[in-house]
Simulated scan of single mutants.
Amino acid sequence: MEIKPQAVVIPKETDQLEQGKYGPVYPRTPACYGFTIIADVKPGRAGAIRDYGNTLAKALEGDPQLLAPLKLHYLRWVLFDDDTRFMYQGIFDTDFDKYTEDAIALFSKAGVSTAFENLEGFPEDWKTNPEAFIRFVREHHCPSFIEYGEYPYFTADEIKKALRIKNSLSEMLDQLQ
């Protein structure tokens, strides 16, 4: 089976897209699903966002499966415009509605906060008011208009499985030498 890179253009108008619980369901692309949020940072809170990034990195060292329920491929956080604006970009295997519901459940269950608490307009009651959390994300979402995948439509689980097989084969071949 030959894997060919692919790109998909996402329409600017979302009227024709299927509507989910919280708005349009953007199509699965060769890069799977994802969203980009850009929001203003509360004055003086950029350091807290950076600290939260360090806390998250340390938590993942202790429990590499911490974010597994989110089915993430990649997560990217960027502070820009002299640390006054924040970009959150995630690529994952589930649709928007499921991802955001899973994120709220994961953080609420773990009793942890989110870096989003440092953003202007983020609802203080986000743990008990998922609709407010989702409304914030939707209002700050900057949809992409084209998405590309070098290994299109493969899930994170499929990629990890392929890598486990590759490693097993490498180990087996090493033992034969």
Rank of each mutant, 00 (worst) to 15 (best):
V8S: 06
V8A: 11
V8G: 00
V9M: 10
V9Y: 10
I10H: 05
I10A: 04
I10T: 13
P11G: 08
K12G: 12
K12Y: 10
K12I: 10
K12S: 12
E13N: 15
E13I: 05
E13G: 08
T14L: 06
T14F: 05
D15V: 09
D15Y: 09
D15L: 12
L17K: 10
L17R: 09
E18I: 12
E18T: 14
E18M: 11
Q19H: 10
Q19Y: 05
G20C: 10
G20K: 11
K21L: 13
K21S: 12
K21P: 03
Y22T: 10
Y22N: 15
Y22I: 06
Y22P: 10
G23W: 05
G23H: 08
G23T: 07
G23D: 06
G23S: 07
P24S: 04
V25K: 15
V25L: 15
V25Q: 13
V25T: 13
V25D: 03
Y26S: 05
Y26Q: 05
Y26I: 03
Y26V: 03
P27A: 08
R28G: 01
R28C: 12
R28D: 02
T29D: 05
T29Y: 08
T29W: 06
T29H: 07
P30C: 08
P30T: 08
P30M: 07
P30N: 08
A31F: 08
A31Y: 06
C32I: 01
C32D: 10
C32Q: 15
Y33G: 04
Y33R: 13
G34S: 11
F35N: 13
F35W: 14
F35E: 13
F35R: 13
F35H: 15
F35I: 04
T36A: 04
T36M: 11
I37T: 15
I37F: 09
I37V: 15
I37H: 03
D40A: 13
D40E: 15
D40M: 04
D40S: 13
V41M: 00
V41Q: 00
V41P: 01
K42S: 02
K42T: 01
K42M: 11
P43H: 03
P43D: 09
G44E: 04
G44L: 04
G44D: 06
R45A: 03
R45S: 07
R45Q: 14
A46I: 04
A46T: 04
A46C: 07
G47D: 08
G47V: 01
G47Y: 00
G47F: 00
A48E: 13
A48I: 00
A48L: 06
I49P: 00
I49G: 00
R50Q: 06
R50L: 06
R50K: 14
R50V: 07
R50F: 01
D51K: 13
Y52A: 01
Y52L: 01
G53S: 13
G53M: 14
T55C: 00
T55D: 02
T55M: 12
T55L: 12
L56Y: 03
L56G: 01
L56R: 10
K58Y: 04
A59C: 03
A59P: 04
A59M: 14
A59R: 15
L60R: 15
L60S: 08
L60Q: 14
G62W: 01
G62L: 12
G62K: 15
G62T: 07
G62Q: 15
D63V: 02
D63H: 06
D63K: 11
P64K: 10
P64S: 09
Q65W: 07
